[in-house]
Nucleic acid binder design. Structure first.
Lengths: 119, 119
DNA sequence: TCAATATTTCAATTATATATGAAACATGGA
DNA sequence: TCCATGTTTCATATATAATTGAAATATTGA
C-alpha cells in the first residue's frame, strides 16, 4: 500500500462523524445500510452525511450501491484490513517482537447470515 | 476505547508527515529514535517536525524521553494496537464473519535485541 | 564561560475542511 | 402525471490545520 492511500484512509476516519458512520457500517457487515438508516443511527444531517460518505468512498473505505431510491453503503473490509496491515508493517524492523497475526475481519467470505433473496 | 480517542489518533495519523514519522518509529521498535534522526529519515524541517511530534504525542501514539541533549521518540505500541482493535470492534454485529485475531505487534515484550547498556 | 549542537516555541501567512440550508435530482406509488 | 420520499449538490460562512523562518531554550564539550 502506498503511503498516500493510507493517509487518505486515516484522515477520512479521523473525524467523529465519519468514524461513527464507518463503524456503523463495519458492524452492519457486508450487507450494508441505507444512507437514511446511517443518518438515523448517527444523527448526522443529510447534506453533511452525503459529504462524509463521499470522503469515505473516495478513500476506498466504503462502497455504494443503488437499490430503488435507496443508496446502500457498506464497509470495504479489504481496504480496512490493508490499512491495519500497513500500520504494523515491518514493525520493529522485522526483528522478533511478536509474530503478527494479520487479517482480522470479514475477509473473502461474507457472513452466512440468512438474507431475504432480494437480489 | 472512546470514539474521541480513536478520532484523535486517526486524524493524527492522517497526515503524510506524521504517518511517515510514526512508521519510522514503529519500524525502529521500542528503542525509539532521536528527533534529529527522524528528521533525517523523513526530510521534515525541525520546526514542522516538532509540531507533528506534539500532535502524535497528544494522541498518545508516541512517547518522548530525554537523553542528554537528545529527545528520543518511540511508538506507543499499546495505543496502536488498541486503535486497530477499535476499528474492527464488533465487526458484522458479532455474527460469524471471520474470527478476529487481535493484538498484532510488540505487546508486553520488547524485543530481545542486543542493546549496548547505555541506560 | 563560550560556542556548537539539538530541539522547541512563536507569530504570521496560507490553505483546507466543515456545517448549513436551500434547491436540484431520482425513484416509486397513487 | 403529480406528490412524497430519499439522497445529492451547491454556495457561503466559519473554523482549523500546516508551513515557514527567526528566536529562544537546553545541553555538551572546549
Amino acid at each position: 500500500m502506498e503511503i498516500q492511500t493510507a493517509v487518505t484512509a486515516l484522515s477520512a476516519l479521523g473525524h467523529p462523524s465519519r468514524l461513527a458512520v464507518f463503524r456503523a457500517l463495519v458492524q452492519a457487515g457486508p450487507v450494508g445500510l441505507a444512507a437514511g438508516k446511517v443518518g438515523e443511527i448517527t444523527g448526522i444531517a443529510p447534506s453533511s452525511l452525503s459529504f462524509h460518505f463521499k470522503e469515505l468512498a473516495h478513500a476506498g473505505l466504503i462502497s455504494a450501491r443503488h437499490e430503488g431510491r435507496y443508496v446502500i453503503y457498506a464497509a470495504v473490509f479489504d481496504a480496512m484490513n490493508d490499512l491495519l496491515t500497513y500500520l504494523t508493517d515491518n514493525c520493529c524492523g522485522g526483528n522478533p517482537c511478536l509474530p503478527m497475526s494479520t487479517p482480522p475481519c470479514c475477509v473473502e467470505s461474507p457472513p452466512a447470515t440468512a438474507q431475504d433473496g432480494t437480489e
